[in-house]
Design a protein around this nucleic acid. Structure first.
Length: 461
RNA sequence: GUCCCGUUCGUCUAGAGGCCUAGGACACCGGGUUUUCAUCCCGGCAACAGGGGUUCGACUCCCCUACGGGAUGCCA
């Protein structure tokens, strides 16, 4: 059975690159009737925070990437790593080293100066030192030969052992390092396929050596190209929005994020809109691009517009509600709330912006667009007064009736449509953004419409 | 510095030696529909990093250079 895993370290919130890695792991597992696991790599006690761990777990949950077992924490499995380290010592494949960090530093500098690759020179390799307070445990890495593996996205990858040094397995304080933990955990959890970021590519041969020392079977690998920011550099908080929760709070749908991330670095014909089921059916990890891919916010907007449009009204409202709540908007005070939302649902590409556009229909206008006021209201006293007089006696406040009144006004005042409509529109919603005028009036209702027009009148001269 | 990986329109990509006058999508620009906005429709702009090979023929294969990224930690 195929078992994949997503192994984040809780040193920050879940970012979109991580979501993509998790997504691909999830898809690959599901496509093979396998399991998708989550492992929290929290061995860095200084930087790891439980709040980040929670953020990651809820983020995965929000994305619908449900693990097939409860997440495990490396901090709770130390005994496994120490056990493994012990076996490596016993089998003579590791050794204690007491080289000081100063010596290592000097060594590195000297090697770089000489134009060589910096690596540990194996000074303590055959000394047979005993464990003591200032010794680390190193792995005896083969000096020659090569490691090769077949990467699902890159094809065959080869590393010369001569490029690899004896890496540290146990720190002098006795704690295990990342490489040991990863290898031990993957084996313990029965992981068969490691799908991770390209930044781990050169870690792979090291980990394979640990596997060999532990007599573990080799794994299948897929190294994903990195998600890049607009500057073509690795996505960083400095220059772009990286955190999943920021996208969620801006009002991008879960399905849009999945679509965007799944389509990033991969394609299927001319298709652009994918839901998780489409990905499960068509995605092939072998088809993902080898080069890094820029995360394009404009494209995300477009994708979200499409996903929003595909929602039923009922689902749309369910998705929208939290954003309305966020603005303190109550839709319960209007019996035609659904109709309003139905007619305004395409005003923007994110739920948070749509919620903002809905303010005039459910609450007081927060602010009038000054330009529109100057352009359309300021000099329209006569128009507004006239329309107000025509509207006041109207009993049938329906779109059709309103359109008729409007048409009549236009004829009698001898105005072009926008000349009549725009001033009224701005008075009604505070900007030039609204559905057709008759509809807008009917949505807002008689009482409030008249009130707004009177208020508009106060802005004229 | 050294090692590894990568390089098609601004962006995501199609392209596995002749199908390429390099296709699609987003963005952008123009036009149309719409009383405004959004939607929608039509059209346009725009790329094989550079140089050498191999071949009758190269975006596709090989080499070099350039550029970008990653690794080089008692971080993960």
């Amino acid at each position: 059975m195929i078992i994949t895993r997503f192994a984040p370290s809780p040193t920050g919130t879940l970012h979109i690159g991580g979501v993509r890695t998790a997504l691909f792991n999830y898809i690959y597992a599901k496509q093979n009737n396998g399991k998708f696991l989550v492992r929290i790599e929290d061995t860095d006690q200084v930087r790891s925070k439980t709040e980040f761990e929670e953020n990651i777990i809820t983020g995965l949950h929000d994305m619908g990437l449900k693990p097939d077992a409860d997440p495990v924490r490396q901090s709770e499995r130390k005994h496994l790593y120490l056990d493994a380290a012990h076996r490596i010592i016993e089998s003579g494949q590791g050794y204690y080293c007491n080289c000081s960090t100063e010596r290592l530093e000097e060594l590195r500098n000297a090697q770089m100066k000489a134009g060589k690759k910096p690596m540990y020179d194996g000074k303590c390799r055959d000394k047979g030192l005993e464990k003591s307070e200032n010794t680390v445990l190193r792995l005896k890495t083969p000096n020659d030969g090569e490691v090769r593996f077949n990467d699902l996205v890159r094809g065959e990858v080869v590393f010369n052992n001569s490029e690899l040094d004896d890496l540290i397995l146990l720190r002098s304080n006795g704690t295990p390092t990342y490489h040991l933990c990863v290898v031990v955990d993957d084996a313990d959890q029965g992981v068969t396929t490691v799908i991770r970021g390209e930044d781990h590519l050169s870690n792979t041969p090291r980990q394979m050596h640990i596997q060999q020392a532990l007599e573990l079977s080799a794994l299948e690998y897929a190294h994903l190209p990195l998600v890049l920011g607009e500057n073509k550099k690795r996505l960083s908080k400095r220059d772009s929005v990286t955190s999943l929760d920021e996208y969620i709070s801006k009002g991008y749908l879960q399905t849009s994020m999945i679509n965007m991330l799944g389509r990033l670095g991969w394609s299927k014909g001319d298709k652009e809109i994918f839901y998780i089921d489409d990905l499960l059916k068509d995605f092939r990890i072998q088809e993902v691009q080898k080069a890094g891919a820029v995360f394009d916010l404009k494209k995300l907007d477009w994708i979200n517009t499409n996903h929003l449009a595909n929602l039923s009204l009922e689902d749309f409202i369910i998705q929208l509600n939290p954003y309305l709540d966020e603005l303190g908007i109550k839709t319960s005070n209007r019996q035609n709330a659904e109709t309003i939302i139905e007619n305004l649902r395409t005003t923007a590409s994110t739920l948070s912006e749509i919620a903002i556009d809905l303010i005039p229909y459910f609450a007081d206008i927060k602010e009038y667009d000054q330009k529109s006021v100057e352009k359309f209201i300021a000099g329209s006293k006569n128009i507004l007064e006239y329309v107000l007089r025509q509207l006041e006696p109207l009993d049938q406040w329906t779109e059709q009736a309103l359109d008729e009144v409007l048409a009549k006004c236009q004829k009698e005042l001898d105005l072009k449509t926008p000349q009549l409509n725009q001033p009224i529109r701005v008075a009604l919603v505070g900007s030039v953004k609204s559905p057709s005028l008759g509809l807008t009036l009917s949505l807002i209702g008689k009482e409030l419409s008249l009130e707004r027009i009177k208020k508009g009148l106060e802005m004229t001269f």
